[in-house]
Amino acid sequence: MNTDNSFTDSQTSSQDTVQYATFRLGNEFFGIEVLRVQEILKHQEMTPVPLAPNYVSGLINLRGQIVTAIDLGIRLMEREESATDESMNLVVNSNDGVVSLMVDEIGDVLDIKKNVMEPTPPTIKSIKGEYLNGVCKLDGQLLMILDVDTLLEINKN
């Protein structure tokens, strides 16, 4: 692996590395702290919620628990219509209970050294920078680290 990007074996993860679960939305590559992820599910039957904000895909019955599904493509990138039957459910724990993030494709879990994190460059236009903690330059692409708690805050307007 590319030493530049400081990949390490997950077994040896120490204090200065963090594990990220990665996923894709279109061409973009995102990471989320692995400890926040409860499980990953393929397409689930969804109950739409009328009058809900557009980024809410609906409700999922997760073993008897009602889980709100957030269409990350709409929330994060303002895509018109995003989640499909192919979308994956990234079920994460938040301050407000369990939430499912609808993403296009699930990637690997990566160990990333803390010191390679950089602030989100203002040049990223298609993505709402306020929902990112920062970025990591990986081999040929940018991994954008999601700030789950801010993402799930209710917009003031």
Partner: peptide
Amino acid sequence: LNKHLKTISSFAGATV
């Protein structure tokens, strides 16, 4: 309901 949906006055909650 999740806080994103609590503001909708038409719903009191959800069930399975």
